[in-house]
Design a protein around this nucleic acid. Structure first.
Ligand SMILES: Nc1nc2c(ncn2[C@H]2C[C@H](O)[C@@H](COP(=O)(O)OP(=O)(O)OP(=O)(O)O)O2)c(=O)[nH]1
Ligand SMILES: [Mn+2]
Ligand SMILES: [Mn+2]
Length: 356
DNA sequence: ATCCAAAGCCAC
DNA sequence: AAACGTGGCTTTGGAT
């Protein structure tokens, strides 16, 4: 029995303003939120959805996949799946471990370092914004990064209408969706719907965004033009994505291809930078391990999460190793803006403390 | 028993 | 007027 039948047929809750799917009425989380106060069952369904998702995908699944020999969960990193050059992870996917909600954080906390070890994580700061600032040679955006400012935080202050100092981690995270969404072609309608703001405010935000970063706008338009001419787009390092549908006569298909076209060079360049960084970081880690007692592998590169590398490091080496990794990643390729990496360490993947 | 599409949702 | 992108996993319901 489907949830939509219960809500809209049995309980006869109004369908006013509720979005549709191909087959009927949507019961997605954002739509349920609208019904939150319409019936006492709705908040319970929202909680149920979150909990069963986390239970089935992570709590039930991951412990079964612990390798008895290593005591660890091992993933596969796929190198030839994505259209942009990113890796993907499967069986299980360890690139989508929860972090957002309280229960999600509890799951992430289960990823712990071995005895005497610490988890070290190094994540590129605002990575695709830095990449696009360079590719577009956008004066204003490059200036922002040279000054060491934070566009996610700035956007959060605007969307939530609070002073910059009042922006917390959760608000900053929510602002990422706005920054990347707007960049990659989100409309005023979509922005208003996602952020629960008026269409007018959304429209104004997008307009000012591209007014502020007008070279970005010009650059994105130029990518579409060259995609139409050549039939492909490419990253800074020449990785290509072919997009034959960019010249489709069907507007929906063509516009979709245009959004793919503007995203790929940015997401792909960030992926290229990370892949090069992984090779270089591996080399220095290998050197460190070769100098260890009995050439034992003591520093381990464990995971890649698109713009983040996760390591296991002996606790007495954390500061030294983190510094080497951090510098290698930041200097991986000379761009016209500084590339910043945020490095953290902790006993588990949830309770991490920033280094330096 | 196996495959498939759709909806929904986790992450970057 | 509309229209962020990239993935993978689970559940459901239907078909082979
Ligand atoms: N199109 C799109 N790309 C996203 C989204 N979320 C993340 N990304 C991409 C762009 C980010 O630069 C990149 C890495 O994600 P992060 O969570 O590390 O964010 P970012 O590096 O921008 O900020 P940070 O300083 O690390 O908190 O992944 C999204 O909602 N839409
Ligand atoms: Mn990042
Ligand atoms: Mn990240």
């Amino acid at each position: 029995m489907q949830l939509k039948e219960i809500l809209f047929e049995k309980l006869k809750i109004s369908q006013e303003g509720i979005g549709k799917t191909k087959t009927g009425i949507s019961t997605a989380a954002a739509e349920l939120e609208k019904l939150h106060d319409q019936h006492e069952i709705v908040p319970l369904i929202e909680d149920y959805r979150e909990l069963t998702k986390l239970q089935s995908t992570y709590v039930d699944a991951l412990p079964k996949l612990i390798n008895p020999k290593t005591g660890r969960v091992h993933t596969e990193f796929n190198q030839t799946i994505t259209a942009t050059g990113r890796l993907s992870s499967s069986n299980p996917n360890l690139q989508n471990i929860p972090i957002r909600t309280a229960w999600g954080k509890a799951i992430r906390k289960a990823f712990v370092a071995d005895r005497g070890q610490r988890i070290v994580s190094a994540d590129y700061s605002q990575v695709e914004l830095r990449v696009i600032a360079c590719l577009a040679k956008d004066k204003n955006m490059m200036e922002v990064f040279k000054k060491g400012e934070d566009i996610h935080a700035t956007t959060a202050a605007k969307i939530f209408e609070v002073p910059l100092e009042k922006v917390d981690k959760e608000m900053r995270s929510a602002a990422k969706e706005v920054n990347f969404g707007v960049l990659y072609g989100m409309g005023a309608y979509g922005l208003a719907w996602r952020k629960k703001i008026s269409r007018e405010r959304a429209r104004e935000f997008i307009e000012k965004y591209f007014e502020t970063y007008k070279d970005v706008k010009i650059y994105l338009d130029k990518i579409k033009d060259t995609a139409r001419d050549l039939g492909y787009v490419q990253t800074l390092f020449g990785r290509r994505r072919y997009l034959p549908e960019i010249n489709s006569g069907v507007a929906q298909v063509r516009l979709s291809a245009e959004r793919m076209a503007i995203n790929m060079p940015i997401q792909g360049t960030a992926a290229d930078l990370m892949k090069i960084a992984m090779i270089e970081v591996y080399k220095v880690i290998k050197d460190i391990n070769q100098k260890s007692f009995n050439h034992e592998i003591i520093v381990k590169m464990m995971l890649q999460v698109h713009d983040e590398l996760v390591f296991e490091v002996p606790m007495d080496m954390v500061e030294q190793v983190a510094k080497i990794i951090d510098e290698k990643m930041e200097k991986i390729h000379k761009l016209e803006v500084p590339i910043k990496v945020d490095t953290e360490a902790g006993k588990n993947w949830q309770e991490m403390e920033e280094l330096y």
